[in-house]
Amino acid sequence: MSAITRTFREGSESASSGYAVLARDLVKTYGSGATAVRALDGVTVGFGQGEFTAIMGPSGSGKSTLMHCLAGLDTATAGSVQIGGVELTKLNDKALTLLRRRRIGFIFQSFNLLPTLTAEQNILLPLDLAGLKPPKQWWDQVIGVLDLGGRLKHRPGELSGGQQQRVACARALMSRPEVVFADEPTGNLDSRSGAEVLAFLRMSVHELGQTVVMVTHDTTAACAADRVVFLADGIMRGDVASPTPDSVTAQLRMIRPDRVAAGE
């Protein structure tokens, strides 16, 4: 499996560590002096290649900040982030942008697509920006799996929430990135559409060898992953492999018993 994936990822000097993404002692501080907030307080975590990992934590735990720093959307205050062996914290804005374009796929909770572009144009956008075209076979495969064939000429406004999210998935995969970051990808979807998206993410990991890192606060979504890491107050608070609803809930309760009890 991994042999096949490697051939897809041309130019990737994938880490000998076996991690697609690796963060060490990551610190992110907002503000300064007395009002400074440590959103990440020394996080060390690795995300293996071909692994589907969920990041969980209560609101304000720093999980979104972690994802932004891992994905090069935000710069860490201290520590290091490597994607496919490339140190992100040493890159300038332009290099970071080019790295995002080629090596990272994104799926956001909402507002994933540009309203002016058709589904097809949205899917091709990152490749287009890089001046590239996807191989025909890969294109057909992704579009086929996501069942988007009939929707390519539609604009986002003409698509349902589930369809929009599937377009976002197609875009994230089309450039065969080192890693796909998904930020609450099912947050705005009904349960059926959410399940479809999760199934697709699982499939992309297990059948296509993709690496996926997903931020979520939904236990069901987290259980679709191979592994769940837990974050609270900017610190790693647990790591559960092959998660089940029970194991995840237990871990969450351990982090913040009061909140989980209140049903958050």
């Binding site: 332009k94 942008t97 995002r100 374009r101 956008l125 990152p126 890089a130």
Partner: peptide, 10 residues
């Protein structure tokens, strides 16, 4: 979003 997807500042 465009910047996230790889549009540089320039």
């Amino acid at each position: 979003l465009l910047r996230a997807l790889g549009l540089t500042r320039a």
